[in-house]
């Protein structure tokens, strides 16, 4: 379902070319829960961003659900993301001036759903993450773990093809991190979500079906 074929990515800093990923090939079947581990600076986030369509490889192709996303122009790629990718960030990235409900509703504003349909979806997503009673709360009024659960609700509310999570427990205490991992596991098992998760946390990686290590531009 996600086919990463022979991609290379390097960043340019001043006149210096810094290779980050070289000739990476990776297959993620549907329903997979994949954990990406590796030392800092090894390019985990870079690989995740490529799969999520917010970055482009220098060479190689990335096909998600049959679409070669490297060929899409910027605007089509944005539309593709809104339909196919659910983002979970380390620092949750909720908009502070919007309530939990409004944050979760954001991706639905890019669809043709009516207001009523949007409300149903948002309520369902927030109930799923256990925050049905916190819809009117602003991010500031929530704990880190709760914020991340709102972010997860936002990621799943459009029913995307793939969830990408970059260190989703990186900013959380042990208990909250555990809860988040239980939730991720449930999304994978119960709702058959394909998940690619970058993590430093071995406990988090335990929940994944498969753990891959990225080091010095190589994937094992």
């Amino acid at each position: 379902m996600i086919e990463v074929h022979n991609i290379s990515k390097s960043y340019r800093r001043d006149s210096l070319e810094i290779p980050v990923l070289s000739n990476i090939t990776l297959d993620v079947p549907e329903g997979e829960f994949l954990a990406l581990m590796g030392p800092s600076g090894s390019g985990k986030t870079t690989l995740l961003n490529l799969i999520a369509g917010i970055d482009r490889p220098n060479t190689g192709s990335i096909t998600v659900n049959g679409t070669d996303i490297a060929t899409l122009n910027e605007s089509n790629l944005a539309t593709w993301r809104s339909h196919n990718v659910g983002f979970i960030f380390q620092f949750y990235n909720l908009l502070p001036v919007l309530t939990a409900f409004e944050n979760v509703e954001l991706p639905l504003l890019l669809t043709n759903l009516s207001k009523k349909e949007r409300r149903e979806h948002v309520e369902a997503a927030l109930k799923l993450v256990g925050l049905g009673d916190r819809m009117k709360h602003y991010p500031k009024q929530l704990s880190g773990g709760q914020e991340q659960r709102v972010a997860i609700a936002r990621a799943i509310v459009t029913d995307p093809t793939v969830l990408v999570a970059d260190e989703p427990t990186g900013d959380l205490d042990r208990v909250s991190a555990g809860e988040i991992m239980v939730l991720m596991d449930r999304l994978n098992k119960e709702f058959k979500k394909t998940i690619v998760m970058v993590t430093h946390d071995p406990r988090a990686a335990e929940k994944a079906h498969k753990v891959m290590h990225l080091d010095k531009g190589e994937l094992n």
Partner: peptide, 14 residues
């Protein structure tokens, strides 16, 4: 800036 980046990642256009 982060909010803008988040909105764009979610699929909002320039």
């Amino acid at each position: 800036t982060v909010e803008i980046g988040t909105l764009r990642a979610l699929g909002f256009k320039r």
